[in-house]
Each structure stands twice: as C-alpha cells, then as structure tokens.
Nucleic acid binder design. Structure first.
Lengths: 198, 198
DNA sequence: GGTACGATCTTGCGCATGTCAAGATCCGAG
DNA sequence: CTCGGATCTTGACATGCGCAAGATCGTACC
C-alpha cells in the first residue's frame, strides 16, 4: 500500500497542511484561519498539525515565508524581463504591488507583526528580506550608478516603502490597482519638484 | 446615588469600553484583543459590550475610527506648524510615520482589511479618509501650484502610499525610525533621477 | 523473519472566546 | 406610582487552541 493511500501515516502532511492553509488564505484572511479547519481540509484529525508545526503561529510564519519567496521571485522575474534600467525598476515596483493585489491575504501575512516579527521569524525570512533589499538595491544602482553605498541603502528603504505602501493600500481596497502607475509617476515627478533647489 | 457610583448602570459604558480596548491596543495587537478581556478591564460582565457594539468587529471598527481621527489630526497639526510649503509636506509625512511608530497596533487596526473595509466601515471612516486625502492634496498643491486636479489626485495617492509604506515598515520593525527621513529624501532624489529625461 | 522503538496520527480533555437567550435591575415618561 | 425599555447579569452552546494519553505504522536492529 503506497503512502499516499494509507490514510494513517500521511507521508507528507507538512506540505499538505501548508497547501491547505495557503488555499484557505486565498479566500479568507489569516485571522480567521483556524488550525482545525486546515486539518479538516487536509483530511486529518484536529491535532495532527502539532506534529509538524509547534502551533498556529508557526504555520502562519511558514506561510509568510512561502509568500515572501514568491514575492521576491515575482520581482526578480519582472526586473529580468526588462532590459532598460528604469523600466526594470518600475516593473519591479509594479510586480510588488501586483502580488499584493492578487494575493492580499498572503501578502498581509508576510508583514503581519502578529506573525512575522523581524528578529523572531527564523533565518529563512531574514534571508528573504535581505534578498529583497539586495534586489531593489541592484535595480537602483543600475538606474543611478553615481550613488554611493550609503545613498543606495537609503534609497532602497525609500523605494521599498513606496512600493509597500501602494501595495498595502491596493490590497486593502483604498486605492484601485489602475491608480498605481499614475500615482507612482506623479510621486516621482513630485520628487523632482521637491528636490529642485528653489 | 450618582451614575458613576452605581455599578449596575454604568452610565457611559460605550466610552469606557472604547477606552479599555484602546489601552489594551497599546500593549497587544488587535488579533489578541478579546471582548471578554475588554469587559473585564471595564469592570462589567462579559456580555455587557453587546448592548453597545454589535460584535467584536464593531468595536474594532470604532477603534479604527478613533485612531484615524488622531492620525489625521497629527498630520494637520504637523502641517500647520510649518510655514514653508515643502517643510509642511515633509512634516506631514513624518507625522504619519511617527504615529504608526508610536501606536503600531492602533495604526494597524485602521488599515486592517479584516476590520476596516473601505466601503463597509461607515460614513465616519469614509469622511476621515477623504479628509486625509484632502489634507495631503492641499499640501501638494502648496508645493506644486502648477499641477492640475488630476495630477494632484495622482500625486496624493503616490505620497500617501510612500508615507504609508514607510509607516508600515517602521511599525512592523523592518525599518528603524531613524532611517525614515534619509529614505524619504533619497527616494525623492531618486524621483528626480527617474523623471529626468535622458 | 521477528521485535522493540520512535514517529505519526487519533481521541479526549480543559480552558478561553464569541455570541445567543433569558432573567434581573434601574431610569424615566406618563 | 407604575410600567416600558434600556442596561446589565448569569447561563448556555459552539468553536478554537493546545496538552495528554493511547493507537497505529515504518523501520532499524537482532
């Protein structure tokens, strides 16, 4: 009897649980995601998950890592699809916002302070965050090669913040997705205005 | 016997509950805020809140309105404290981020899609959101008087997004508060670079 | 091949919470 | 003074989290 048919020892319950939870996350938010429902959807008893995740928190963190991985990958792909430096930078921002728009609950769980606290989420998330910043930093360095390391670091936080804010507002429904690109351009022009010495 | 001494009819339980919940929100996040604990802290039975709030959701929405009011007010005050248009714009952004830094859980509840959905949160929140956008719009119009209505509208979303993203990242602990101002300036300079015709 | 061990999964439990229902208490209008 | 309605209380039920103890399975070891 193969493992997948034997319903006692599932075989790869951890992945199945993650998948089940992720599909739940496509419908509802993390707050209304119960471990028991995940277990039900995976077809196991309400306590089976505890042999793979310390608690509800741990499963949500795992989902956070999952989505952060995809978010970083989406940015990377969008950036590599463009040859022009500026186009790549803009495309990465759009990818960031786009991911949040398509997976609002998944995106939310990445940055939910109740779930993923910077220092306490484990090395995987730390690595992913660093990767994300490196990705943005490289894109900025391509656009503005004259910048020093310090300046790039600051610009990374600024760009990340801008993309993140629009993503959050779009995901929450405060801003329609179509308004993002004009807003982005307008804000950049605004920057040009603000930094122009009077 | 005055109402405040009579412990049966509280007198102003709605406000007391809001205050209790708000003080809880200063410590923990909204997810771990239970109606029963709020009731305990207010010194009433676990079911008293239901005579003032339809459910847990309604109380959280009320807290969202409360904090959005303060957030808008903080921005307004910061803007009015400056005479220079650019300084006012920057100060408002700093106030936005500062509020999120000082009241991370309160700030989170404003924009929590599980709590405050744009269309369904009631007229008060709608008004506050509009007020917020008007405030930002006025600040932008002061900085760049040459902009048309459409352009300002787009710039509002862009500026709001930038401030919101930095606020979120600071509140979540991904970015230290000291990094905000340099990031803001760097991002604006970045905008100047990006919009400069090659 | 048989067996003991550990990993995996199950059932059952205590406790906390959200929400409904019914009763107790108090205020104020008439 | 009485009665209605608002306010608050106790009680109950369903659900969820996480612990504990038992059942089942794979496998390393003899």
């Amino acid at each position: 009897m193969s493992r997948s048919e034997s319903r006692y020892h599932h075989g790869d319950l951890a992945s199945a649980l993650e998948a089940a939870a992720d599909s739940l996350l496509a419908e509802r938010g993390a707050a209304s995601l119960s471990l028991r429902e995940v277990a039900r959807r995976a077809g196991v008893s309400h306590n089976a998950p505890y042999h793979h995740f310390a608690d509800r928190h741990a499963l949500l963190q795992r989902l956070g890592v999952r989505h952060m991985t995809r978010l970083v990958e989406a940015q990377r792909a969008a950036g590599e699809r463009e040859t022009d430096a500026r186009a790549a930078f803009v495309a990465m921002g759009a990818a960031y916002v786009g991911y949040a728009h398509e997976h609002p609950h998944g995106f939310a769980v990445i940055f939910d302070p109740e779930v993923c606290v910077p220092g306490e989420t484990g090395p995987q998330m730390t690595t992913l965050i660093a990767e994300n910043e490196a990705l943005i930093g490289a894109a900025i360095a391509r656009v503005a090669p004259e910048l020093g390391e310090q300046e790039i670091e600051a610009a990374v936080v600024g760009a990340w913040g801008a993309a993140h804010g629009l993503a959050q507002l779009v995901a929450a429904g405060h801003v329609p997705i179509d308004a993002v690109r004009p807003a982005f351009e307008a804000y950049l022009a605004m920057g040009a205005t603000l930094t122009r010495t009077p």
